[in-house]
Simulated scan of single mutants.
Amino acid sequence: MSTIRLKNIKIYAFHGCLVEEGKIGSDYLVNLAVKADLKRAAHTDELSDTVDYVQLQKIVKDEMGIRSKLLEHVGKRIIDRIFEQLPLVNGVKVTVSKVNPPIGGDVSEVSVTMASER
């Protein structure tokens, strides 16, 4: 099994339980790792034989664009959509981080990491 990673995808989104978060929005970082058998791609050098990281980034961007109260909800949607659209993927690990969360303290970010296998 091989791993493809997308590191620190920067997205402005509107997640959170507070009404203000839905209006003002916040900066987010998403880190994604997918596991797949990439032996064929290594041999053929063809994009069709691998997991296209452009499509992975699009899935993350699209799902981050749908408002959720909880980062857990966003993470699960990202995982589900990857499994739905990319049959080569056998495992997904995603971390969704809210930068400068409004929690009344000096915290640089909060994050939720979720992982699943097919």
Score class of each variant (00 low, 15 high):
6 L>Y: 13
7 K>I: 11
8 N>V: 01
8 N>A: 08
9 I>M: 12
10 K>H: 15
11 I>Y: 09
13 A>P: 12
13 A>R: 09
16 G>Q: 05
17 C>H: 14
17 C>P: 06
17 C>Y: 15
18 L>R: 12
18 L>K: 13
20 E>G: 00
20 E>F: 05
21 E>G: 04
21 E>M: 01
23 K>E: 15
23 K>H: 13
24 I>R: 12
25 G>D: 10
26 S>A: 12
28 Y>K: 02
28 Y>N: 03
28 Y>L: 00
33 A>L: 01
38 L>Q: 05
39 K>R: 10
40 R>W: 00
43 H>T: 11
43 H>M: 02
43 H>S: 09
47 L>P: 08
50 T>G: 01
51 V>F: 07
51 V>T: 04
52 D>I: 00
52 D>F: 00
54 V>N: 12
58 K>A: 03
59 I>W: 14
65 G>M: 00
66 I>N: 13
68 S>P: 10
69 K>D: 15
71 L>W: 15
72 E>L: 00
74 V>I: 13
74 V>Y: 11
76 K>D: 11
77 R>E: 09
77 R>L: 04
77 R>P: 05
78 I>A: 00
79 I>T: 09
81 R>Q: 13
84 E>G: 02
84 E>R: 08
84 E>W: 07
86 L>C: 08
93 K>E: 15
93 K>H: 07
94 V>S: 03
94 V>W: 08
95 T>Y: 04
96 V>D: 03
96 V>C: 02
98 K>T: 11
99 V>Q: 08
100 N>Q: 14
100 N>D: 14
102 P>S: 05
103 I>D: 12
104 G>N: 12
104 G>V: 06
106 D>R: 06
106 D>K: 10
107 V>I: 14
108 S>F: 00
109 E>N: 12
110 V>L: 06
113 T>L: 00
113 T>K: 01
115 A>C: 06
117 E>T: 14
